[in-house]
Amino acid sequence: MDDLPLQKVTISGPTLSSLINRFASSPSNTQGLLFGKFSLHTSSLSDESPSPSLSPSSLIATITGFISSGNSSGNSSGDLASLLRRTHHRHVIGWFSGRRRSPLRPSLHEFAVSQSLSSESPRVFLLLTTPFNDTQSLIHTHEYRVYHFVRLENSFETTPLDVVNIGPAFRGQYGAFSPNSELPCLPCNFQDAVSYVSGVEELYEKMLAKLDCLATQVEGSSSKVLEMITDTLLRGIVSANIALHYWAVMETFYFKL
């Protein structure tokens, strides 16, 4: 699947805006991993296309989330690599780099990182920059471009980015945006979660034990009542009192439950 061409990259409006927000709130440069999935796009076969076997399909990458590794510093490729290990490479489709006030084209560092990451799996590279001019006076404050790292040619290819928004034109794409990446591991909260879960389980176990106990009690009293009824029937004496007593017992039991 790696060798298929990448037709386009799609991202939902909220994801893109939160990515831009993350970049805008960082003091200088930022970078991180992109999560999502690749889906196969089969071109519609038509009778006119002479040889559909040449390029039968391509991939569409969908970005559903991201994780930022904070400031990009000297050993940032190391940061990304450790981030990749922590996420176990699951659903990572690429990485992003945001650098303020710089040209919108990949740098030496970014190329080197993409090349070294491409041996793992991620191939999408999203570059975010801000314009050279004072951003206060601009309406257009952020720029982005998406590249696809082609391992065979060892080069970046510009790839169109579709921003999927709400509206009838995008209805067909909603399905694609159910997030499918797991939460990144949260080691600090894990112990709390474990103790909470075990607490709840203990509570349920106690309740079950109580129910069991009640059930045996009811079973015992029911059989006693049945015995009494059959006994009475055998004796030929039908007493409304006994029936009344039976119902009273049953009522107490249900009330207890």
């Binding site: 003091p27 200088s28 440069n29 400031n71 510093s73 000297g74 710089s102 040209p103 970014e110």
Partner: peptide
């Protein structure tokens, strides 16, 4: 492109 936030890091070149 240096980064004043981490001035000890190597520069990037575009």
């Amino acid at each position: 492109i240096y980064n004043v936030e981490s001035p000890l890091a190597p520069p990037d070149v575009i």
